[in-house]
Amino acid sequence: MNITKGTIRSWSRLGQRATFFGIAVPEIAKQNDDLMVVTADLAQLSNLTKFKDQFPDKFLNVGIAEQNMIGISAGLAMEGYNVFATTYASFITIRDLEHIRQHLSNLALNVKLIGTAAGVVAARSGVAHWATEDMTFMRALPGMTVMSAADSLEAYCMANFAAEHKGPLYIRLNGVPDCPQVYDESYVFEPEKISIVSEGTDAALIASGSMVHEAVEAAALLEKDGISCTIANMHTIKPVDKEGLKKLFDSHRLIATIEEHSVIGGMGSAVAEYKATLCNTPRQVFIGFQDSFCYNAGAQKYLWEQAGLTGTMIAEKIRSELK
């Protein structure tokens, strides 16, 4: 597909989920005979209605039965299908965890898990619909690749990568409709490589998903105070890009990891686990949900404020850490 400025703008309006399932997946279906898309009563919400009508043979709805969805996906994968299974990020990674471990991880099956409304996208629905520990659970599973998309264009690229990838993989989508655009049409998605959005010298802001854009905002504010930041998009949380991380450790005096996720076990932890094996690396600040659900529900921005996840609050945190 020829991707223009206009395409990217329209995809940002659609959001990551609609770009992934409404644009990318139907394209993949045309090329990929073995594709199967499985949902648990969320065809409409996941923008799969068009796909279902266009490719009824490649679509399966299992009803509100997420565990069975993973088992069925495993059975289909054992018979040669390339399966995309999807529902809310919270349900697919948490309710289904043992099915994923036993079937997809243990048997190394070719099933791609697409978690929608990751982070606190389903803000007003409350904790049940939030996914703030999904990366922790998925990252712990042997053989599982874990990715998080910064914008709709990156979600589109990840869908295509997932279709070609062999083995279990988890993609968390947390860009809502009208989500900010991080990349333009020149973006080349390199799986498993950290993408440097802009280069600086003082602090490295390593972000993933919706937080990449917040990091961009934070860096602009810090720039005014004379603090120069690198913005790094760690879209592949597992496996970690050690070479890319090492370069960031070697050239900055502060590392900040920023994620719409718990600071326990997520992207920040992945960075810290590697950093701990090296000598003389800079200090790391973990920005994310601090072992708390922020019990009062509210708008996504409101919840980000509770957790210090807005561009302004990230900038404040970096400023104080560098004092």
């Binding site: 399966l60 565990q67 069975n68 993973i70 088992g71 069925i72 996906s73 495993a74 059975g75 289909l76 994968a77 054992m78 018979e79 040669g80 299908y81 043992e98 099915h99 036993q102 079937h103 243990n106 048997l107």
Partner: peptide, 19 residues
């Protein structure tokens, strides 16, 4: 590889559906 109970039947559904 079973052992954790109650899980294989879902896989069987997937395989039967594939057939």
């Amino acid at each position: 590889s079973g052992g954790s109970l109650g899980m294989a039947i879902s896989v069987g559904v997937g395989q039967a559906l594939a057939a």
